[in-house]
Design a protein around this nucleic acid. Structure first.
Lengths: 129, 129
DNA sequence: GTGCATCCTGTAGCCACCACAGGAGCAAGC
DNA sequence: GCTTGCTCCTGTGGTGGCTACAGGATGCAC
């Protein structure tokens, strides 16, 4: 059984974040020592590590929670997990495409700026597009 | 002078968003009619359109506000605007690179899932990476 | 005068945390 | 035994950029 600081260090999830996960029901309430301090088992720390990896992969907290539940159920629903991951990858790709459009638009706007014009073409373009 | 609904329609900025911009000081408080309703000049509506375009280009509200101030000052500081835009484009590109890494990682994780394995390789990979 | 659209203020919710304030406990060194 | 410094506790408020009400007042067309 480990204190919250140790759990944080071992899982990579911040102390405040662990307490936030508990408050919002993402993880169950852990055991408490006689002095009221939280105590975490190795399994609970593994759960936190799992959540951290999901968040690092860009899954929302709700998705991360769903994946954790899928992984902890006997059998580990592979199809469900793959569907979640596919949907998430599609969102990531859509966002990439959107940002690439932005990148191109910004490039165009900045292009004429390098010419040392007196009136800024960038600001003018934004104002009058 | 136009009511807020007209200003919203002409600028593309939502009514609640216009009031939010006012509350947070992004735009100055407009004139009021005798009955207390907000009245917007054409210049103020143009300002809203400018902000909208900046937001559509992915600038933060603070950056949008800075650009607006640059554009309204006499002379329209081109170098300042270009610097803001460059910094923003760099952030956009960094985000694209990050998302592309995520895309690749997700692809790898999903790869073995299609094989119809009993134990889900995706969930296993997240749990034990 | 009746209905509907529009406007007003103020507050709360979204996401995923992060940063306190103000206090309590605990272990080590002197 | 006392101080120092670390960790922990609860509770609250802030971030960004809106969005969605509640509960009321007004305006305008029929």
């Amino acid at each position: 059984m480990h204190a919250i600081g140790t759990a944080s260090r071992l899982s990579g999830v911040g102390i405040e974040t662990i307490r936030f996960y508990e408050r919002s029901g993402v993880i169950p309430r852990p055991a408490r020592a006689a002095n009221g301090r939280r105590l975490y088992t190795d399994a609970e720390i593994a759960r936190l590590r799992f959540l951290k990896k999901c968040r690092d992969l860009g899954f929302s907290l709700a998705e991360a929670r769903a994946l954790r539940e899928l992984s902890e159920n006997a059998g580990a629903d592979c199809a469900g997990a793959a569907a979640l991951a596919r949907a998430h990858r599609d969102k990531v790709r859509a966002r990439i495409a959107e940002l690439q459009r932005l990148d191109a638009a910004l490039g165009e706007l900045m292009q004429n700026c390098a010419d040392g014009n007196a009136a800024c073409p960038l600001l003018h373009a934004i104002a009058n597009a």
